[in-house]
Simulated assay, not measured.
Amino acid sequence: MQSYVDSRKFAGASVLIAQGGQEVFFHAAGQRNIAADLPFERDTVARIYSMTKPVTSVALMMLAEHGLLHLDAPLGEFIPAFRDMRALIPGATRIDQTEPCATPTLHQLLTHTAGLSYPFNPGVLPQAMEEEDILFRPDQGSLAAMTERLAALPLAFKPGSRWEYSVAIDVLGRVVEVVSGQSLAEFFEAEILTPLGMDQTRFSVPEGTGDRFASLYTPLAGGAMALNAARKGDDPLRLVDVAGRSPFEAATMQSGGGGLVGTIDDYMAFCEMLRRGGTNGETRILSPRTLGFMMRNHLPGDIASMGVASFAEQPMEGMGFGLGGAVVLDPARARVPGSIGDFSWGGMASTFFWVDPVLDLSVVFFTQLSPSSSYPARPQLKALVHGALVG
Rank of each mutant, 00 (worst) to 15 (best):
A190I: 06
L153F: 08
R47G: 05
V240M: 02
F40G: 10
E249W: 10
H107M: 15
G347T: 05
L88G: 02
H298V: 07
T44V: 05
F78Q: 04
D72Y: 03
A304N: 09
T105F: 11
F136P: 02
L369T: 14
G244R: 07
S339D: 07
D265E: 15
S287L: 09
T194A: 10
G307H: 02
L71P: 04
L220Q: 06
L220I: 09
M51E: 05
E77L: 10
I48P: 01
R275F: 07
F82M: 05
L68S: 12
S339Q: 07
P300Q: 11
Q140V: 07
G181I: 06
A81N: 02
P122H: 09
G173Y: 04
R245T: 12
A35F: 01
F343N: 12
M85P: 00
Q140S: 13
G20M: 15
G262V: 09
S180K: 05
S370F: 09
L135F: 13
L143A: 03
V390A: 13
D139V: 10
D330Y: 03
A214N: 13
L150T: 03
M62D: 02
G307K: 04
G277Y: 12
F270I: 08
G208N: 06
A64K: 14
A11I: 05
D342G: 00
D234M: 04
F78G: 04
K382G: 04
G173V: 07
A388V: 07
V15N: 13
